[in-house]
Structures are given as structure tokens and as C-alpha cells.
Amino acid sequence: MTTVLVLTALAIFVTMALALVRALKGPSVFDRIVAVNVIGTKTVLIVALITAISGNDDLIDVALVYALINFIAIVAVLKLSRMRDLAASGEGDITDG
């Protein structure tokens, strides 16, 4: 069973490497954010798999919190790239409406 878990983890690492290539190539800033979003989702799955491989159940809380932080981080980065200021609001704000 551990073999299957490790194989799955390896597949996820390959995915992260491919997403990293896209993040480096760009060309626009949003392509990079898409790639970072993919890497974040994969990180949650990797942590969940490591929990199963190591048998240390406490690690699952890390995955749970990372799943939430990842979403907040993506929206914050998008807002930062759009408004140049996290506290700004007004015309063209993506977090509004």
C-alpha cells in the first residue's frame, strides 16, 4: 500500500514541477497565478498523503489550514496585482461584486 501512496505522491510532484515551468514561463502575471494556485492545491494533497504515509495523524490539520490559507492567498495576490493596495476599494475591484 505504501508503494501506491508513494507513487501518487511522485505523480503530484511531477504535476508541481510542470506547474512550476508554467509559472516561470509566464507570459502574463495571471498565468503565473494560475500555476501558483495549482501548486497550492497540490501542496494540500501532498500533506494529506504524507499523513497517510507516515501514519502521524496530527499532520492532517496542516493540510486543512493550508487549504484555507491557499484560497485567501490567491485572492489577496489577485487584488494586489489589480489594485496595487490590499486595503483599496473602488472601480474595478475583483473582490467586490
Binding site: L7, A11, V14, T15, L18, V21, S28
Partner: peptide, 21 residues
């Protein structure tokens, strides 16, 4: 698990090969 890993790799190949954002 293995099918999930396979779809993960597809999701990695897609952003590399598709034409625009």
C-alpha cells in the same frame, strides 16, 4: 489514488500546452 495522480499530471500538462490564459 493512482487515477487521481494521473489526472493530476493531466492538469499539469494542460497549462503547459494550452494557447492562452
Amino acid at each position: 489514488l493512482l487515477a487521481g495522480g494521473l489526472f493530476g499530471i493531466m492538469g499539469g500538462i494542460g497549462p503547459l500546452r494550452f494557447p492562452d490564459f
